[in-house]
């Protein structure tokens, strides 16, 4: 039977380490969702990705059951991976920690297009480029 949706909740949680603390508790608790069940299921689903922040979209139904989907990693994570660097710049604006090509930016923009809610590819690429600059990653080309 099709279940009626009462809400969608978007969070970013550390893989394998979600807890009932804010924002998980208040966000899900306001819908009467079993917080312990979400925390357990999310942590089980993301345990292999420990150390990463995982965007997750939770759909809550009228009977207060829920399901969730894991989204693509944040753009900054994808950029660091593309640039082959461990972490972003400590001194943003002066320190360059890595480089990506425009083609890589376009690929990341495609991956993130839906999550970014960007109106078109140009807008998505602008966001990815801005995120790259903010992480100390230079866009070549």
């Amino acid at each position: 039977m099709a279940k009626e949706i009462t809400g969608k909740i978007k969070l970013q949680c550390p893989a394998g380490q979600a807890t009932p603390a804010p924002p998980v508790g208040p966000a899900l608790g306001s819908y009467g969702v079993n917080i312990a069940a979400f925390v357990k299921q999310f942590n089980d689903a993301t345990r292999a990705q420990q150390g990463l922040i995982i965007p997750v979209e939770i759909t809550v139904y009228k009977d207060r059951t829920f399901d969730f989907i894991l989204k693509s990693p944040p753009a900054s994570v994808l950029l660091k991976k593309a640039a082959g660097v461990e972490s972003g710049a400590g001194n943003v604006g002066t320190q360059i920690v890595g480089k990506v090509t425009r083609k890589q930016v376009e690929e990341i923009a495609k991956t993130k297009m839906v999550d970014l809610n960007a109106r078109d590819m140009a807008a998505a690429m602008k966001i990815i480029e801005g995120t790259a600059r903010s992480s100390g990653i230079q866009v070549e080309g």
Partner: peptide
């Protein structure tokens, strides 16, 4: 569109979990 980057900017310190909406 910039929410992810803003999230990363304000998730400083011991709490790394962020909510949107």
């Amino acid at each position: 569109g910039w929410c992810e980057l803003v999230a990363e900017t304000i998730a400083i310190g011991p709490c790394t979990t962020v909510a949107f909406g």
